[in-house]
Each structure stands twice: as structure tokens, then as C-alpha cells.
């Protein structure tokens, strides 16, 4: 029992320790905050103007603003979760992580937690500014359901990010290209800028493995109940997201153990400048 408590404390301290630089980084380089809000806003604005040029209904502007805000999470998962161990390897920190007397899972959780909080600030800023600039009004039909969907979306999404982080342990510079490859195709498949239903049932069902697909669809249904663009019922989507959250976290733990061993055996943990 004493051992368990000690290990739990180390685990929690690691989570906080790894989350700390991400949270403190929010205010250390404030100009970054500007860029991280300004850049997604530029892309979002371009997509809003496309819909305006096409004469789309006003709710599509809302879909784009929400999608634009959620891109911040996907980019964070790709560049600050998936590729993180690659960057750590390049800067020589990865070896230090591995010899530290703590759980690697706690390091990943700390990264996820810190990233989640820091990104929420940016996503909220994009959402608020986007709504103000483009005069978007959201009507929340059920706050509880919206928060639950958002919570499960983030847990499942960062669980997926943890799986990627483990997988990317094996990569050298191809990590950068793989993360790059996971941008536009995922923006397309997850329906960041249009309702996912328009891709047809089977493609949407396949894309639902990416948590943000169902998360975005459910949030759009809750914010625009009259639009009629929902893929599945919000209840079903929330249940699937909850299941994905559990599955991805367990899979991330297994993957981390397995791939760390593979990387150790193949001597890839300390290779730099590849």
C-alpha cells in the first residue's frame, strides 16, 4: 500500500511536471499566442469567404468557425504529441526521459494535459474572434451534452495522440512528413469545414475512428439543432466517443511498452539528425 501510494505520487508529479512547461509556455512567449490564434483564424476566414462566395446558408459559417477552432486541437495532437518524442530525440531529452524513475505513460499524460489546456485557450480565442468577426450565433440546445461530447472528444483525441507518440518513437525525419501527411486528409475525412454526413455513410463511419469526426458532428448538432446535417444521433456519437476514449488510452499504454522495446532493440532511441 505504501509502495502504491509512493508510485502514485511519482506518477502524478510526473504528469504535473510534464504539463508545467506547456502551461507556463502560454505566458512566456506571448507573441506565440498571437500567431497561434491568428494563423487558424486566417484559414478559417478563407473558408468562410468560400461559403459566402457560394451563397451558402449562414449555419455553414458557424460550421467553419467551429471546425477552425477545433483544428487547434488536431494540430496540437500532431505536432506536440505525435512528433514530440521525435523532437525530444533530436534535442537529446528522450534518453533522459527513459532513464528517469517514472512512468512513460505519465509523461505522455502530462504532455496531453498541458497541451489540452494550452490549446483550449487558443481554440476558445479562435471561436470567440471568429464568431465576432463573422457574426456567428450559436444556440446551445443542451449544455450538459455539449460539455460531455467535448470532454470525450478531447480524451479520445489525446489518447490517439499518445498512440501516435509511441508509434513515432521509431521514426527519424519521416516523423515530420508523416505528421504533415495527417493534416489535409484528416481535415477532409473529419469534416472540419463541412458536415461529415456529406461524405456518405461508409466514409463517415470509417472516419469516425478519428475522434474529432464524431465530436465535431455532435457539437454542430447541439449548436445548430435545426440544420439537419447530423450523421448519427448525438447520444450514439457520445457513447462511441466514450468507448474510443477507453480503447485509445489502453492501446496507447500497450503501444508505448511494445514500441519502446522495439526502439531499444533497434537502437533508434538516441539516433539524431536523421
Amino acid at each position: 500500500m505504501k509502495n502504491f501510494r509512493r508510485e502514485l505520487m511519482v506518477f502524478l508529479r510526473t504528469v504535473i511536471g510534464r504539463a508545467y512547461p506547456r502551461l507556463i509556455g502560454l505566458q512566456r512567449e506571448r507573441s506565440w499566442l498571437f500567431f497561434e490564434i491568428f494563423l487558424p483564424l486566417l484559414g478559417t476566414a478563407a473558408f468562410v469567404y468560400i461559403y459566402r462566395a457560394l451563397g451558402a446558408k449562414p449555419e455553414f459559417t458557424g460550421f467553419v468557425v467551429l471546425g477552425g477552432a477545433m483544428t487547434a486541437y488536431w494540430m496540437n495532437v500532431l505536432w506536440s504529441m505525435a512528433t514530440q518524442f521525435y523532437w525530444e530525440k533530436e534535442t537529446g531529452n528522450l534518453a533522459l526521459y527513459l532513464i528517469a524513475p517514472t512512468s512513460r505513460m505519465a509523461i505522455l499524460l502530462g504532455m496531453a494535459f498541458g497541451g489540452m489546456v494550452a490549446t483550449t485557450v487558443r481554440a476558445l480565442a479562435v471561436l470567440i474572434l471568429g464568431s465576432l468577426v463573422f457574426r456567428v450565433t450559436f444556440t446551445v440546445s443542451n449544455w450538459g451534452a455539449l460539455l460531455l461530447v467535448f470532454f470525450f472528444t478531447l480524451v479520445a483525441l489525446y489518447g490517439l495522440g499518445m498512440i501516435f507518440a509511441s508509434a513515432f518513437l521509431l521514426y527519424g525525419r519521416e516523423a515530420w512528413h508523416m505528421a504533415n501527411l495527417l493534416q489535409e486528409p484528416v481535415f477532409l475525412l473529419s469534416g472540419f469545414y463541412f458536415p461529415i454526413k456529406s461524405l456518405g455513410f461508409w466514409i463517415s463511419a470509417g472516419a469516425s475512428l478519428i475522434p474529432i469526426t464524431l465530436g465535431l458532428d455532435a457539437m454542430r448538432q447541439l449548436l445548430y439543432p435545426q440544420a439537419g446535417w447530423g450523421f448519427l444521433d448525438v447520444g450514439i456519437e457520445t457513447t462511441i466517443l466514450a468507448v474510443l476514449s477507453v480503447v485509445f488510452l489502453i492501446a496507447a499504454h500497450r503501444m508505448l511498452l511494445w514500441l519502446e522495446n522495439v526502439a531499444r532493440r533497434e537502437g533508434r532511441l538516441t539516433v539524431r539528425g536523421q
Binding site: L54, F60, L181, E184, F187, L188, F192, P195
Partner: peptide
């Protein structure tokens, strides 16, 4: 990477980028 993966990479990224706009257009 190997030429096959490079070809896939070169193919998927631009087509996905174009398809986002195509789907947006088709939806409207």
C-alpha cells in the same frame, strides 16, 4: 522514405486539399 511511400505522400496531400474545397462546393 521509399519511392512508393513518397508517391503516395505526393498524391494524397494535394488531392485531399482539393477535395476539401470540392466537398464544400458540392454540399452547397
Amino acid at each position: 522514405t521509399d519511392p512508393f511511400l513518397f508517391a503516395v505522400y505526393s498524391l494524397i496531400k494535394p488531392i485531399a486539399g482539393a477535395m476539401i474545397l470540392v466537398v464544400m462546393y458540392l454540399v452547397v
